[in-house]
Amino acid sequence: MSLIGKEILPFKASAFQKGKFIDITEENFKGQWSVVCFYPADFTFVCPTELEDLQNQYATLKELGVEVYSVSTDTHFTHKAWHENSPAIGKVEYIMIGDPSHVVSRNFDVLIEEDGLADRGTFIIDPDGVVQAVEINAGGIGRDASSLVNKIKAAQYVRNHPGEVCPAKWQEGGDTLKPSLDLVGKI
């Protein structure tokens, strides 16, 4: 079942960020744009490349008013240990949520029950706490954070310009469409 257009379900989890442990709930996702990036496990192979790539886009995302949350079913303690031992993860400044109870992963429908791990799922959440975009990849397929930046710009544009939509490959400043009866069959 799609989560598009649905509000985030309640949860409470411990997280690691910038040398501290913090508590996170669904309320943290409201009042700003958020990206929630699920990944299978700490101390693995594809995951650190993705999280480092996301960190490389973090300043750009912050400029767009977006906060980033990574989530795995590891604990916040494991996130801290990984942060201290991996050159790639040591760069991460955004929030790393621990989900050993699997509540957050179940809420976002990315939990692989038999493994106790999360799929590679990326969620763009608007300031109302509503999911606007979802991408889920198989475990061996890493994501590209630069394409995430473009999706967020499109989501923000559509939110700020009711009645307009962004076509395929839309880039900021590019032409948009205004759906209407006159446009049917003309594209």
Rank of each mutant, 00 (worst) to 15 (best):
S2T: 15
G5H: 05
K6S: 13
E7H: 04
I8R: 01
K20R: 15
I24S: 07
I24E: 11
F29N: 06
G31Y: 07
Q32M: 06
S34W: 02
P40C: 14
V46H: 07
C47A: 13
P48K: 12
T49P: 00
E50K: 01
L54K: 04
N56S: 15
Q57P: 00
T60L: 09
K62E: 13
K62G: 08
L64K: 12
L64S: 04
V66F: 13
E67G: 04
S70C: 13
V71E: 07
V71F: 05
T73Y: 02
D74Q: 10
H79Y: 12
A81P: 00
P87V: 08
I89N: 05
G90I: 07
E93H: 14
Y94G: 09
Y94R: 11
I95F: 03
S101T: 15
V103F: 00
V103C: 00
V104C: 06
D109N: 14
I112L: 11
D115E: 15
A118N: 07
D119H: 11
I125D: 00
D126L: 02
G129L: 06
V130R: 12
V134F: 00
I136M: 07
N137G: 03
G139H: 13
I141L: 11
A145E: 01
S146C: 09
V149E: 04
K151G: 03
N160T: 14
V165W: 00
W170S: 12
W170C: 09
Q171F: 10
D175T: 10
D175Y: 02
T176P: 04
L177D: 00
L183I: 13
